[in-house]
């Protein structure tokens, strides 16, 4: 049996507490997918193959509305645009890793391990075992996520409609987005994107979401420049 890299164990230890955040998201996602009438096999395939809760929730909503397939894929792509940012920002730490390792990291690149990984290696850039640490973080999170989705699928159809659990979907997005609002430009980006999404909701093909992303980025950069130019 190969011995585990000590950084793998550090990763597992750092990843386990994150299950408190990941578990409820998985549960909410499972419940929403079950309520959307997606069969359990396809639902678990989504969870394992896509492994990105926000896009699964968005896709489920559109599937229930009977949106065309291409549109659903496009909406999921926009929801997951943030993964480009994750990919770009951990790139400097994994540049010299072999291809198969970078492919594995790509599959496991979700919000919580990403944040944890970046936090550790941006403060300790010389620390060894980056890949092993990421793997250690990812294992408990992957297992916990899949278990939580499965549990959500199991109980989802039994829960009474009077509980209004469909509201858990926007609430899950609130819980995901608010921690990003750490500075004024971020708040400007979020506010501008939110307002654009409301104003553009009538546009076809979910263009509103794409417009909102553009408006948010523009507002964030504008706010950043404005704050930099202002005398302190």
């Amino acid at each position: 049996m190969p011995t585990l890299h000590p950084e793998f164990r550090h990763g597992v230890r750092a990843g386990l507490p994150l299950l408190i955040a990941v578990g409820p998201f998985g549960l909410v996602t499972g419940v929403a997918i079950a309520a959307g009438g997606i069969p359990p096999l396809q639902a678990m395939a989504m969870s394992i193959l896509i492994y990105a809760g926000a896009s699964m929730l968005a896709a489920t909503q559109l599937l229930v509305e009977g949106a065309p397939a291409l549109l659903i894929v496009l909406a999921a792509f926009i929801v997951n645009l943030r993964l480009f940012m994750y990919s770009a920002s951990i790139r400097p730490y994994l540049l010299r890793e072999p291809l198969h390792r970078r492919l594995l990291v790509s599959y496991g690149l979700v919000d919580n391990p990403y944040a944890m990984f970046l936090q550790r290696f941006s403060t300790h850039p010389e620390a060894p075992g980056r890949f092993d640490y990421f793997l250690g973080l990812s294992v408990p999170i992957w297992l916990g996520w899949q278990a939580a989705v499965a549990l959500g699928l199991l109980v989802g159809q039994e829960l009474p409609a009077a509980w209004k659990l469909e509201f858990a979907t926007p609430l899950a997005f609130i819980a995901m987005s608010v921690p990003f609002l750490r500075d004024k430009p971020m708040v400007a980006a979020a506010a501008s994107a939110g307002a654009t999404a409301v104003l553009a909701h009538g546009l076809p093909l979910r263009l509103g979401l794409a417009l909102a992303a553009v408006a948010g980025i523009a507002a964030g950069i504008a706010a950043e420049r404005w704050l930099a130019r202002r005398p302190a």
Partner: peptide, 22 residues
């Protein structure tokens, strides 16, 4: 890199705001 920084806050917020306001 600067533009990408704002993507998560923008996209994730754009999903829930219409759900509450409309």
């Amino acid at each position: 890199k600067r533009a990408l920084r704002y993507v998560p806050a923008a996209v994730l917020t754009a999903i829930w705001v219409p759900e509450l306001m409309l």
